[in-house]
Design a protein around this nucleic acid. Structure first.
Length: 433
RNA sequence: GGAGGCUUCGCCUAGUCCGGUCUAUGGCGCCGCACUGCUAAUGCGGUUUGGGUUAAUCCCCAUCCCGGGUUCAAAUCCCGGAGCCUCCGCCA
């Protein structure tokens, strides 16, 4: 949730943000009204509680004669307090509801517009030319025996898949590469739970307008995460972090689950858009004033990873209307998909400023030693399924084999390419380094 | 799934049986001051987190895992929930 003090002191900034997102700016005034109402009600309840407290203290020392009158007054006050507290509860709930409705305040530099108004910041790597008709990733995956969609559908339904043989080895190789690069950069590797409580889901902002996207396990009141961001953010909920020696950074591995409601007909072929995939996610806690710089660092790590995979890409600055609830700013990296002749999203990094931390009560001590909400940031290091799809396409050859980027070879037994009918035993890391 | 125990202001802890200056005890840690060649030790003082109010201080309210309830009054009694531990059962 956003900072209430900002809403009080500069409501116009919040209204402007709502406008930029294409959201209702009258919600800001509703929030202000709820805030004013709550403060009034709280004051009344506080005063009454104070009076009642004094009255009940008096009961103790009262003589037998005084006692009935004092008790009578205390009883009367107790009734009033009860009413006042009920009013306070209602006002608190109303404020919270109004507060939760408002998405994070958009950063000033964010481009205006919606989904189609992302601004390309830079394009890196040459788009490859092929002297043969290109295949899409599924054709290549099937030739290699790497992807089995039909059986995925048989077992689990549409948008599920099996990774088999070289496909499965690729998944592990990418995971190893991503984690080892992250650890080298100072991230703490984490294997995170994929099922979380409602508080974690709500705290990260995924239960608002996006709850259609989320799988819910009703029987146990748990949710399947769509990204390990959820577990990583909630990991330090209700804690005061020590950030004096710099940002706290995690590289989390988990499976991710998405209902993909409303995406019927989009990307129905292959493993670009699926209900389940595995992902290495970067997550960072830092003081708010460092967040923008940290955001650029996450972006840089993402770019370095794609460069290591020898994938051409472009970086886009997402427009205000296309930002997630928690994000103040977001960069996507889109990599080249030859079969589609276009760039498609491969990673995404968001600066959530203090929005998530406020909901989850994640704080740090500022220079004065006061606990303050921390900033949280997240960024994809490697969304495995989609990365495999991109790799297969970009690095395909006429004979159906696929070039293995140098960075990935140590995790694939040193092989330089994957080819149909290959000896899998040659493509696992050797027992000694 | 069954039985029992536990959860107190950073950490440890007293208090809970039997409700009332608990406005929560003590230790450790931390901060300040004093003393002292330096450090250490010692002494004194301070040290939960929110909300309200304020120019700021003061002050007020809440806070003993969370949510309800009983009562004039709840850390303490009752109900529900969460987490941790032990044992049994089951299980990769």
């Amino acid at each position: 949730m956003i900072d209430l003090r900002l809403v009080r002191q500069n409501p116009d900034a919040v209204r402007a943000s709502q406008r930029a997102r294409g959201a209702d700016e009258s919600w800001v005034d509703a929030l202000l009204a709820a805030d004013a109402e709550r403060r009034e009600v709280v004051k009344r309840a506080d005063d009454l509680r104070g009076e009642q407290k004094t009255a009940s203290q008096a009961v103790r020392g009262a003589s037998a004669e005084e006692r009935p009158a004092i008790l009578e007054r205390a009883r009367l006050l107790a009734g009033q307090v009860k009413e006042a507290e009920e009013a306070q509860r209602a006002a608190d709930a109303a404020l919270r509801e109004a507060h939760l409705k408002i998405a994070n305040v958009v950063a000033d530099e964010v481009p205006p517009g919606g989904e189609d108004d992302a601004v390309t910041i830079r394009t890196v790597g040459a788009v490859p030319a092929y002297a043969f008709p290109v295949r899409d990733h599924l054709e290549i995956g099937e030739l290699l025996g790497a992807i089995d969609m039909e059986r995925g559908a048989k077992v689990s339904g549409a948008r599920f898949y099996f990774l088999t043989g070289p496909g499965a080895l690729l998944e592990f190789a990418l995971a190893q590469l991503a984690i080892s690069r992250a650890v080298t950069a100072g991230f703490i590797p984490v294997v995170a739970p994929a099922l979380v409580r409602p508080e974690a889901m709500e705290g990260t902002g995924f239960l608002g307008e996006h709850d259609e996207e989320v799988y819910r396990v009703e029987r146990d009141d748990l949710y399947l995460v769509g990204t390990s961001e959820v577990a990583l953010a909630a990991m330090h909920s209700n804690e005061v972090l020590d950030l004096s020696s710099g940002p706290r950074r995690y590289a989390g591995w988990s499976s991710c689950f998405r209902r993909e409601a409303g995406s019927y007909g989009k990307d129905t072929r292959g493993i670009i858009r699926v209900h389940w995939f595995d992902k290495v996610e970067m997550f960072s806690f830092c003081p708010p004033e460092e967040a923008a710089a940290e955001h650029l660092r996450l972006l840089a790590w993402e770019e370095e990873f794609l460069t290591a995979l020898e994938l051409p890409y472009r970086v886009v600055d997402i427009a205000a209307g296309d930002l997630g609830t928690s994000a103040a700013r977001k960069y996507d990296i889109e990599a080249w998909f030859p079969s589609q002749g276009t760039y498609r999203e491969l990673t995404s990094t968001s600066d959530c400023t203090t929005f998530q931390a406020r909901r989850l009560a994640i704080r740090y001590r500022d220079a004065d030693g006061k606990p303050q909400p921390a900033a949280t940031l997240n960024g994809t290091l490697c969304a495995v399924a989609r990365t495999i799809a991109c790799l297969l396409e970009v690095h395909q050859r006429a004979d159906g084999s696929v070039h293995v980027p140098k960075a990935l070879r140590p995790w694939l037994g040193g092989v330089e390419s994957l080819s149909p009918g290959m000896n899998l035993a040659a493509a696992v890391p050797p027992p000694t380094a």
